[in-house]
């Protein structure tokens, strides 16, 4: 996916929204900046399919260099699918963070808050200030 087509959480998760017959489906991952900051990833905890998430709620954890960081959902909805191949293949986050490194797909149940997500340019500015 092209980062220009994505929205970003301040906490470094990205989301790609697409329309389906049942409403919007959000594909969610973590940004290249986050992957570079975290460096050596060793474990990821994924949510269960069917779990209902509120925007801003922690949906999983990722460990790097002995630091466990929570991951936060950019949208409210139900988890439809998780990328279960990630646990044994964490290098994919570095190789393809906006493609094969997707973490979960969520059926969006409440679109309020989506407007507050950052576009690529605004997110890049935030990263520049943090980095």
């Amino acid at each position: 996916m092209n980062p220009a087509d994505l929205k970003f959480n301040k906490t470094h998760e990205w989301v790609h929204l697409e329309a389906s017959e049942d409403g919007k489906i959000a594909t969610i991952g973590i940004s290249q900046f986050a992957v570079e900051q975290l460096t050596d990833l060793v474990y990821i905890g994924l949510p269960e399919v069917g779990r209902t998430l509120a925007a801003g709620e922690s949906f999983g954890e990722i460990e790097s260099v002995k630091a466990v960081s929570d991951l936060y959902s950019p949208v409210s909805g139900d988890v439809l699918e998780v990328n279960s191949t990630l646990s044994d293949n964490l290098e994919v986050f570095s190789e393809d963070p906006y493609g094969a490194g997707w973490i979960m797909k969520v059926k969006v149940t409440d679109e309020s808050g989506i407007d507050q997500l950052l576009d690529e340019a605004t997110y890049a500015k935030q990263c520049a200030e943090e980095g």
Partner: peptide, 9 residues
Amino acid sequence: TGSAQRRFQ
């Protein structure tokens, strides 16, 4: 000596 972290938002 070793240290570890938990990071929230």
